[in-house]
Design a protein around this nucleic acid. Structure first.
Lengths: 243, 243
DNA sequence: GCAAAAGTGTTGGATCTACACCCATGT
DNA sequence: ACATGGGTGTAGATCCAACACTTTTGC
């Protein structure tokens, strides 16, 4: 028996994938294409999403959507906002598209973002024409998904400063410069390498491994890992008022 | 013509009101009471909320709910989370209650919180048996509303450190000690008065008025105001990484 | 004059910022 | 040997934390 869809509630997923080698923060999107005789009616990209099932938690919908798209489970996930403007799907192309789908015109969507490594996703098996786009170079985007992506990105920019989520975007073993590059990509700023390095290395939960990079054509860098356990023990909230 | 309700989507509002004189951060709740012959079936408190109308933005639903409850418009408002667990309304009392209401069992609710001053609300005109409760001394709470309140409170605790929302809870003219008391109430911490005072007074957007408290039986304190305009001009984001 | 809360300064430690060169490695 | 990015130290400024007494007012 197939689970029953709730026709006016969906989940949309902004999948952020960081590519350590190109230093690019990417968003995973799927192609939306519709042709009528000669004319291309719709040809753009949207986020991946799906209806919530009647007996399903919202978090589980998001997890299911990610799994279908990437095969991955257990990635960092955050529900960050609901989009429910009555006119959010009223663009011409969106209306054409919705005609072919079992979709209520007044659908509200619960938006999640995921953090993972681009390299962990094998797009070749994907049936949806999924593609990575740098978050700052998005293609033509359908529905209100550009807005959703930008709000997810804003939340990520803010959260990465105060929570250790940066490591969700990096491989288990990373170099200090990789962390710095990632911060710079996300925030669009330059960071002083010496200050950054000192700051990170002094954290107890950033652990130097007995390993260096291999296969690089330059001085191989020291590898580190992040220990969530130590972080949870060591971290203490401060109540610094910074208004 | 009455607007049409969406039966499976609601908005719930956590209305935070600060009482400057008792130094209490309160939540506004309404009584839920149902009697059957001799037996009291339901007798507790819930948040105020309502269905979203078909052609209504979520933000507008929240504003409408607040207005009906308090008469107020233009208060600080934040959509902070969606609650959509399929079993969120499956408690026995909730089921009894829902029987009398036009309610879908699988309703997801978009949760907002509002910030205002307790004194701005006139409860005497209210038809809902609305009452203020200190956020740390809640009564018996129905549905999953205690969870919703606690998550709103967590968000408020975090946000008041980095955004100037504290002033939404205070009268236009306030003393430095009132701000300090409010921070202490919200965060449950003690703050050093000298350090706090220096910090606040040095902000360009905290403006000393040519006025002091009147009608107090002690040394009257200097009054200040907060200028949002100056704040917006002066404030600059820093990218301090504090993981 | 007394009760009650307002208001006031200093010091030591920590943390941030700015800044430029040498080093280790693979090719 | 050279190109590439890895790695390193210091000094000045700013900011935070800790700490206790005097002042002003209404009664």
């Amino acid at each position: 028996m197939k689970p029953e869809k709730i026709l006016n509630i969906s989940v949309d997923c902004v999948v952020f994938g960081y590519d350590t080698t190109t230093k690019s923060l990417n968003v995973l999107m799927i192609k939306r294409y519709l042709k009528d005789k000669q004319k291309i009616l719709v040809n753009d990209y949207v986020l991946t999403g799906y209806h919530v099932y009647t007996h399903e938690k919202l978090d589980d919908t998001a997890t299911r959507v990610l799994k279908e798209l990437t095969g991955l489970t257990d990635q960092y996930k955050k529900q960050f906002k609901v989009f429910g403007d009555p006119n959010r799907l009223s663009n011409e192309k969106d209306l054409i598209w919705i005609k072919n789908e079992e979709f209520n015109l007044r659908t509200i969507t619960v938006a999640y973002y995921f953090l993972l490594k681009t390299e962990d996703v094998d797009l070749s098996k994907n049936t949806n024409d999924a593609e990575w786009f740098p978050v700052n170079e998005l293609p033509q985007v359908g529905f209100d998904h550009e807005k959703i992506i930008m709000e997810a990105y804003d939340d990520l920019k803010e959260k990465c400063l105060s929570e250790p989520i940066i490591f969700e975007l990096l491989p288990d073993k990373f170099t200090i410069n990789e962390v710095q590059d990632l911060y710079q990509s996300i925030l669009g700023i330059e960071i002083d390498n010496r200050n950054f390095r000192r700051k990170l290395i002094n954290k107890k939960y950033i652990i130097a491994l007995d390993e260096k990079q291999i296969g690089v054509s330059k001085k191989p860098a020291q590898l580190y890992m992040f220990s969530k356990d130590i972080y949870d023990k060591v971290f203490q909230k401060n109540y610094l008022i910074t208004i």
